[in-house]
Amino acid sequence: MIITLPDTSTHEITKNLLKTQEDYSMATGRVLTLIVVADADDDIEAILAPVREASREHPSRVLVVLGAPESEPARLDAKMLFLGDSGSSETVIMTLHGPMANHPAEIVTPLMLPDTPIVAWWPTTAPANPSEHPIGAMAQRRITNARHNVSGNALLRVSSGYTPGDSDMMWSRITSWRGIVASALDRPPHDEILRAQLIGPADNPSVDIAAGWLADRLGVPVERAATNDDIEDHFPIRKLTITRASGEVTIETRGTRTIKVGVPGHPEALVAMDPRSDTDCLAEELRYLDADQAYACALTGLGRVVVR
């Protein structure tokens, strides 16, 4: 169900939210308020798709704030999505025109659920310091998406502007891969680790954050090398080589959904691993609302990575 409210107010939006809940006996068991910050020119359906799917695990009130600062005069247009059009959430899409685009916090505050966590997500371009953004200052968790904002040094932006509670989907994209790495290193022989090398596309920040994670956790020299290809449907970390006294542990991408693992003294193993979508990453980020200490340590480890 879709309700369109052109040139409206937060009072009218709230009234329609309550009326729809009463008329359709909608459950109000929302677990958080998710505020999505984007631009009016972004692909809104591409942004809403992962939100809709992630809501099946995390029923939320979703407030989508779209800035259109060049429009005049100041005006608030809203579209409200319920039931099948919004997954397990209720979604309010608000386009802020003119000077109103500079005051998003004042617009969303009357619409937030009381006594629930607040999460902010920038699916495309994010501010240099999310915690200082008017929306980010209200949120317990702030999620950015450096893979969709690679102009300039996106990795430098997220590391220099880090505040506890920040996270980026480049980190959740490698969760399954990190589990494979940990499993390979748990297998004997458990001798000394000397160094590590990662190979992946030069402009993919997931490769860089993986290198930072290894530098922090292993405490050895880590080299990050670039490939000449950037095949979108392949996992970005093409190959990891960890050198131990007994030989090399290798974790290498084979095709689109297979990882080959080689450990000295053991037969090679093939592990299935699907590429992680924005839906997978967003759902994972919403499971943990405390500060992600492992992510913070990985950002710290970036300073010890050698780039070739």
Rank of each mutant, 00 (worst) to 15 (best):
I3N: 08
T4A: 07
E12F: 05
N16V: 14
L18P: 00
Q21P: 02
Q21R: 15
D23M: 14
V31H: 11
V31I: 12
I35D: 02
D39Q: 13
D39C: 09
A46W: 09
I47K: 07
A54T: 07
E57G: 15
P59F: 06
G67F: 04
A74H: 03
K79I: 14
T91Q: 08
I93S: 00
T95W: 04
T95M: 02
P104S: 05
T109S: 09
L111Y: 06
M112R: 14
D115L: 04
D115N: 13
T124S: 13
T125P: 01
N129P: 05
I135A: 07
Q140K: 12
Q140E: 15
R141H: 05
T144W: 00
R147W: 11
V150T: 15
T163I: 14
D166A: 09
S167V: 15
M170S: 14
S176W: 01
W177V: 04
A182W: 00
L185M: 11
Q197D: 06
I199E: 09
P201M: 04
A210Q: 04
L214K: 02
A215H: 07
D216T: 10
L218E: 09
L218P: 11
G219E: 12
K239T: 12
T241D: 01
E248Q: 15
I251F: 03
E252V: 05
G255H: 05
G262W: 01
G265V: 07
R276F: 02
R276H: 08
T279N: 05
L286R: 09
D290W: 10
A291I: 05
C297S: 13
C297Q: 14
C297Y: 10
T300F: 10
L302F: 06
V306Y: 11
